[in-house]
Write a protein that binds this DNA or RNA. Structure first.
Lengths: 199, 199
DNA sequence: TGACTTCTTGAACGCCCTGTCAAGAAGTTG
DNA sequence: CAACTTCTTGACAGGGCGTTCAAGAAGTCA
């Protein structure tokens, strides 16, 4: 049963991606529908018709964000030795290695930003965020368990606990960096964490 | 030169403290002036006359929050051995016993929440937040340096870097916990961090 | 007491926001 | 072609927001 009627005048996935960037850099509350209309070159009615209301639109963007990030995470950690890859992951949220300082650049982790802005008041946002955190720790736990077995990472602590701690470090770095990033201090702190994991 | 005219009908400090609790549990954007009027039993005009506009009111609340927290932090870390006290700090990152609201439980660290909501868009908020983070790392750095000298904490890393990492851990824990706190997992992660500091 | 100062009250203002809707545009189908 | 379906457009409604303000209340001071 083919769809009839006038076809959409814009690409849905591409529009969602651009909306994601806008939500990412400005946050949920500070991004108005009018901002989206202006930035996406799609009129209000079309946005509502395609994506539902603002909250649904935003949560879809967060879900997309996490899907991309999770794929990146899994791919990046599928290497030996693990610790250099882990260092890369930890520095990535704040883009320590790229040093992008242009205006309008996304700030921090979108999941973390959502946690601060919508959780715990919004139950669906809480669900998305909780799931993302759980996946993060699962993926890191698996990687750390393998690295412990290989003798690369210390077994002084359980991989679950190391992973949970690294979640805190990533989110903390991501958040604190919004207030201005001292790259040297941040990298030194990350290296301190990585060194503490070494067997 | 004594003040003349009608005296205020409410206690300024107490009102600021209650406003802090409200801002803390709901955030800046989600706390309306009407919410404050209802909760504080002070009319709009009086609030504006006493505290200026909403943003100034909020930032004053954040400054008060940090003052209380900083005093608590310094007092708590002025002990030997350091690590049990540090564990206490990490375990209750955003808890100020004297400011716990009986209405809604405050969520996370107010400085961290402010970072997520107003930084970097608001320059005065950025200044308050940045200063708080710098003070946190200074205080922890001093404590860790003493503990390294005493042989309690490992000197495998510089105290500055250990302190910066602990800032990330505190803020990350505070943020992630908004989405629901698994106390067992959180405590295990904190203990992992504390153990890694042990000489 | 009367003049003066400050605080209180709550109505009102103007702005911006999300979400809706009716009419027109642009396709598909038979 | 005509009928049908879907998308697009932009004006509009309705509400909540931060902020202001004029009039009255409640003190101090000479």
């Amino acid at each position: 049963m083919a769809r009839t009627g006038r076809p959409r005048g814009f690409d849905k996935d591409q529009t969602l991606t651009r909306a994601l960037e806008l939500f990412w850099s400005r946050g949920y509350g500070s991004t108005s529908i009018q901002d989206l209309v202006d930035a996406l070159a799609v009129e209000r009615g079309s946005l509502y018709g395609t994506f539902g209301d603002k909250r649904r639109f935003y949560l879809d963007a967060v879900r997309l964000y996490w899907e991309v990030y999770e794929r990146h995470l899994i791919a990046a950690l599928d290497t030996t030795p693990l610790l250099p890859a882990l260092r890369e992951i930890l520095t990535h949220p704040a883009r320590l290695d790229e040093l992008i300082s242009d205006v309008g650049v996304p700030q921090g982790c979108l999941v973390g930003n959502t946690t601060a802005e919508l959780v715990p008041h919004d139950s669906e946002a809480t669900q998305v965020v909780t799931r993302s955190y759980r996946r993060f720790t699962e993926i890191l736990t698996d990687a750390l368990r393998r690295a412990q077995t290989a003798g690369e990472v210390t077994d002084a602590a359980r991989p679950e606990d190391q992973a949970q701690l690294l979640l805190y470090v990533v989110q903390g770095l991501s958040l604190v960096s919004r207030a201005g990033l001292d790259r040297t201090a941040a990298l030194a702190a990350i290296d301190t964490a990585i060194d503490a994991l070494r067997a």
